[in-house]
Nucleic acid binder design. Structure first.
Ligand SMILES: [Mn+2]
Ligand SMILES: [Mn+2]
Ligand SMILES: [Zn+2]
Ligand SMILES: [Zn+2]
Lengths: 144, 144
DNA sequence: TTGACAAATGCAACCCCGTTGCAATACAAT
DNA sequence: ATTGTATTGCAACGGGGTTGCATTTGTCAA
């Protein structure tokens, strides 16, 4: 999967630079949690790579334009990105530590109903459903 | 309604300053559209009142703490505020002009189902549902 | 009406996220 | 190895938001 992504970029005439490859690696290594631009920079630093913030933003735009990642909004006003291979789903945000997880609503007619919502005066093209709460790591232990 | 709001503040020992009263007026005059801090500043300027941006942010915090307004997130990363008297509802954002409108989902079991969503590992305390689209003003006329 | 005190405001300085123009660098193909 | 251009870095900027501190203003009581 990662390899195909790289080759597809090369075939289109784009270069596989060190930073670009590492950024793609970060997304494949953290496929379960959307990543913000500052977080991505931190991930790179952990790999001993200092990337200019301009480069980070430009690369996120580039990978989005190439359909490799998608921007998501988890409800706290910060842009995050994740690999574009999970289809439509939603997110949950921890109000204490800002952790975000992806969630899919499958067991009820909710998603189907959402697609039918008709809002007067607006041509609706999409929606975002975000849940808020406290993640397991932030919840006090129930045993002690 | 506006008068009760002002008297309630006074009863709690807070002052009814010129700016504070005008801000409350702006919210009551635009009860259908959530307002951002910069927008609020513009509204005041239209009334020939220059308020320092620090004052704007502090007043928004104050009115939120007093339960008069609530912060909402319409999905574009900008904080907006509206009077806290409409109960739980959702919002729709115009992707072209960034206009936001409040929408209530009443005609289906959607809201009830949302409240039942159970997400493992998270203690869910709430949710936000945002719709995206093109508003009437931004849609090309269907007649011509 | 006038003080006095606390609440509210303005100002300056700062932080963070994100963007732009332009010069320097590094891919990758020849 | 050379070369053309995609990519990167740098500096500077803008918007949104916050903080400390000095100044103003609303309120109430004398
Ligand atoms: Mn996701
Ligand atoms: Mn609303
Ligand atoms: Zn948490
Ligand atoms: Zn519009």
């Amino acid at each position: 999967m990662r390899q195909q992504t790289l080759e597809a970029l090369k075939d289109k005439g784009f270069r596989l630079t060190k930073i670009r490859k590492l950024i793609i690696d970060v997304f494949f290594s953290n496929a379960d949690a959307p990543i913000s631009a500052p977080e991505l920079r931190t991930h790179l630093l952990a790999l001993d790579v200092k990337a200019n913030k301009t480069t980070i933003y430009r690369e996120l735009d580039f990978l989005s334009a190439q359909g490799i990642i998608v921007e998501i909004n988890a409800g706290d006003g910060k842009k995050r990105y994740e690999l574009d291979r999970f289809g439509h789903h939603h997110h949950i945000l921890c109000l204490r530590c800002s952790a975000v997880e992806c969630v899919a609503i499958e067991d009820c007619a909710l998603e189907e109903q959402l697609s039918r919502v008709d809002l007067k005066n607006f041509k609706v093209t999409g929606h975002a459903l975000n849940f808020f709460g406290i993640c397991a790591g932030c919840s006090p232990c129930t045993e002690c």
